[in-house]
Amino acid sequence: MNRKLINWGLGIGTPLLLVAAWWAVSQNSTNTFFPPLATILERFQALWLFDHFGSDVLLSLRNLALGYALATVIGVGLGFVTALVPVVRWALDPLIHFFRGIPPVALVPIFISLIGFGIEMRLVSIILAALFPTLIATVDGIRSVDPSLKDVSAVYRLTRTEKLAQVYLPAAGPQIAAGMQVSLQVAFIVMIASEMLGASQGIGAMTLLAQQSFMTSDMWAGILLLGVIGFGANMLFELAKNKVLAWYVGSRRLAKS
């Protein structure tokens, strides 16, 4: 019991200690690259709360949310069709694998050349880059559904919709969720990259602009905000996943003990 308490204390204490150490060490820093933490937080407040909140932060977040949502819907839908219709699978498989090999950020210059620097380019980049992890995970998940489940649903004469919604989707759920988590990471990366490559609005653009004009505290403020968003988005996903897949998490825990 006592030991557990110490461990908990360590878990909460260390991050606080690290931040305190950063604060103390950087307090009188004159190094241009590493300004005092106090200055960074001051700039953070001045920039993001709430001066550029509406014009840049919300813009980035909306692109991320909308692009990611569309990517998952298209990815899961296309994944179902690809997995269940052999002809489609044969025709698309080589193409999917080729696109999967391309680093997602390398597609951004292509979309810039095709659609320009606007918001549509950023959205399309996010959708197309984030599509593939979910799509591939969905195909794999459905392909590896236990054959006896298929037999049982055939014996019970489930209709096509029932089969899709009540057998395939839950059975492939954990794998789809894993793919969606990767997609979220990719969407976040491409959101930043699409803003850094030539856009003038958004958190990524402002952070890179601050770096290029040697406003180091502003750059740090941007990095902090992006870090918090990256962490927060992942945490939200974990929470939602644990809720939706509670049956799976529970059955895994049972199988382990």
């Binding site: 890179l208 990095i223 992006l226 990256g230 945490m235």
Partner: peptide, 10 residues
């Protein structure tokens, strides 16, 4: 969960 592109400017 923080990708390296975040610290790229630094």
């Amino acid at each position: 969960p923080i990708p390296p592109i975040v610290i790229l400017p630094l």
